[in-house]
Design a protein around this nucleic acid. Structure first.
Lengths: 210, 210
DNA sequence: ATCCGTACTTAACACCGTTAGGTTAACACC
DNA sequence: GGTGTTAACCTAACGGTGTTAAGTACGGAT
């Protein structure tokens, strides 16, 4: 009711621009994103955006940043439902990764379409906001004896690669397993079917045919 | 010497256009590709391309097609060096996948940036030209007893996901393992380090700490 | 009253994919 | 020889793009 509520706050338009960009990417995809479309949705001229951002790339980067944050929260909450040190907790993280990617395809695509300029650390990777969380779960599972001891970074990267690869392949062609491939229809189901391979490996073992 | 040698053959300019497009994608990336740049490199006007192709997308699709073919040959030759039914053969395919992706980054990016319109089969996937090859190696390894018996499609997809995920992550940030992650510097080395996980799994086993 | 920075604006540039329409040369047929 | 027909291009242009330059309105501070 006061003036402060009516007059746009500092950075309010900035937020509007980022939100509009996010929505447009989600609706029509990154390649179809245009500054003029963003501007029109916000209600300003296209060049006004350059007052707040250094250019299109900078704008997209900001959207990616907000996606990172959301992704981290998603992973945290998925993990909290399972006991510390359990394999279930690790599995839940993998499932959350898949769910996030499939429910936020636009975000996921944007995140992994960019080239990181300042890597040097796994956690700096796109989507790497979830890496420390995964690593922690892996370390705890090793300490509890549920997971065999190994380099935790290597094991985390292995898990990450597997689930990330599956997500990417699924997204690349909206892969759906047919009859001869498996009876589970959802991608999450596919990840679940990977469970035995992840737990017991691929190599034949004496008498072991689970 | 005859006229036929001087006059361009049928489809010769078409080939030149595809080659120029491939080179430009490799040099400057798909987003920077322009019809005018392709035309200039070939030595014709930009609109001439439309005489041979339906548009930019069609042109890119043709480049992708040639990349598929090359990828298939790459996988075939990598496999031939190892005995049928061996785990080494399966491993060699994974290494070849990584090598191809890292040596032909532009191709690989293009291949997986497209959306397949006619999927319905794993082999229709981008890069799926290698899938039947992988599947065959997996089936043979299961029959020889080197690999534990399981759904061959599921096991193949699992292997594919793992190596594809690693490749994607490496490409996303030119990830290089540091001291605390592993002593092997190359991405291929990373894949090699995945070996124990792939063979024996992650789960702790009684007395088993290789 | 004047200056100054913020928050925009319009106009324009250079480039993009694509289309329309024209030109040239080769070839087939009567 | 004349007459289509077609392939293989061309130039000009349209509407779109990211981005820059330059100008305008306005709200304080001095």
């Amino acid at each position: 009711m006061t003036q402060a509520d009516v007059v746009p706050r500092v950075n309010e338009i900035e937020t509007q621009i980022v939100d509009a960009t996010r929505d447009l990417i989600a609706d029509r995809g990154l390649p179809a994103l245009s500054m003029r479309a963003v501007a029109e949705r916000v209600g300003v001229s296209a060049t006004a955006i350059y007052h707040y951002f250094d250019g299109k790339q900078d704008l997209v980067d900001r959207v990616v940043g907000s996606a990172f944050a959301r992704f981290g929260e998603y992973m945290e909450s998925a993990m909290d439902c399972h006991p510390r040190g359990s394999m279930e907790r690790v599995r839940a993280l993998g499932e959350a990764y898949m769910s996030f990617a499939l429910e936020n395809v636009a975000y996921f695509r944007v995140i992994f379409s960019i080239q990181i300029a300042h890597p040097r650390d796994l956690a700096d990777l796109p989507g790497g906001g979830g890496y420390p969380i995964l690593r922690r779960a892996v370390v705890e599972a090793m300490e509890s004896g549920a997971m065999r001891r190994a380099d935790p970074d290597l094991a985390s990267l292995f898990l990450w690669s597997t689930v990330h690869g599956l997500v990417t392949l699924v997204l690349a062609c909206r892969l759906e397993p047919r009859d001869e491939c498996g009876e589970s229809p959802t991608p999450q189901g596919l990840f679940e079917l990977f469970g035995p391979f992840l737990r017991e490996g691929l190599e034949a073992r004496d008498g072991g045919s689970s």
